[in-house]
């Protein structure tokens, strides 16, 4: 019997201030599958992610959710400035009423796993560097043990080393826990590194212009294979729109 998808967009349409962002958007993400949604700036990628996560209600169509628990890694860390590092990481756990001792244990374990140190546990976000805040952002999402993870251009403001570290960390977590991933990005190399499948959102009509499966599994692809794939696709006219310097005029 075929497994039902973790997430299905069915003829989803949305408009902002009377202007249509996309219409009849369809996409299904299988359980344990990592899909990268690429699109030019202003094409509505983040809105689609917010619709998927239930933060924004679509104007038309529907989203079917076949998962239990979701988490979002945002582009900016969005840590609460009045909470310490471990309280921030445990925010999702506290929101669902988990006990203080249990959530502190989970938060501390995850903080260490993303490369934060014990001395940082009681620090406030203002005392942490940008990279440390982004690590905490990832740890907060993993803390709730999601089976669907939404990533909204999470590493666009991080340096190359940290980006690789966090990407590897997420790939390893997705493999060991088997959660599904929807990654919104405009970085083709990141998409090729992290995803099983790539869907390209057209900047013209807001539909999927191309959907391509990637050979091999995330984490097992060589750097050479990743760069060759990026090189090949960047010459493809479907992907050409992603690298256009001009934003989508609406």
């Amino acid at each position: 019997m075929r497994q039902s998808p973790a997430l299905t967009f069915s003829r989803v349409g949305h408009a902002f201030l009377g202007r249509s962002l996309f219409e009849d958007f369809d996409l299904a993400i299988g359980k344990g599958e990592a899909v990268a949604l690429l699109g030019p700036s202003g094409s509505g990628k983040t809105t689609l992610l917010q619709i998927a996560a239930g933060i924004v209600e679509p104007v038309k169509g529907r989203v079917l959710r076949g998962y239990r628990r979701q988490a979002v890694v945002f582009q900016e860390p969005r840590l609460l400035p009045w909470m310490t590092l471990t309280d921030n990481i445990a925010y999702g756990l506290a929101a669902r009423g988990e006990g203080k001792a249990a959530r502190r244990r989970t938060a501390e374990r995850l903080a260490l796993s993303v490369g934060l140190e014990e001395a940082d546990f009681t620090k406030y976000p203002a005392e942490l560097s940008g990279g440390m805040r982004q690590r905490a952002n990832v740890a907060r999402a993993l803390a709730v043990d999601p089976d669907m993870l939404f990533l909204d251009e999470p590493f666009s403001a991080t340096d190359v080393g940290l980006r690789r570290h966090l990407q590897d960390l997420l790939i390893a977590a997705a493999r060991s826990r088997g959660f599904s991933v929807l990654l919104v990005t405009h970085d083709l190399a990141e998409a090729v590194r992290v995803a099983d499948r790539i869907a390209v959102l057209s900047g013209r009509d807001g539909r999927i212009a191309a959907s391509r499966a990637l050979a091999g599994r995330p984490g097992e692809r060589s750097e050479r294979a990743i760069f060759e794939q990026v090189e090949a696709w960047s010459r493809d006219p479907v992907f050409g729109e992603l690298f256009s310097a001009t934003e989508r005029a609406r």
């Binding site: 239930g54 979002v72 969005r78 009045w82 925010y91 506290a94 929101a95 669902r96």
Partner: peptide
């Protein structure tokens, strides 16, 4: 509002968001 959206994405109730985001 961005913090509010973050909290919503984790399923935080209105009362919990009021206590942890709005009131501080």
């Amino acid at each position: 509002r961005q913090l509010d959206i973050m909290a919503q994405s984790f399923g935080a109730s209105w009362a919990y968001r009021l206590r942890t985001i709005t009131l501080p």
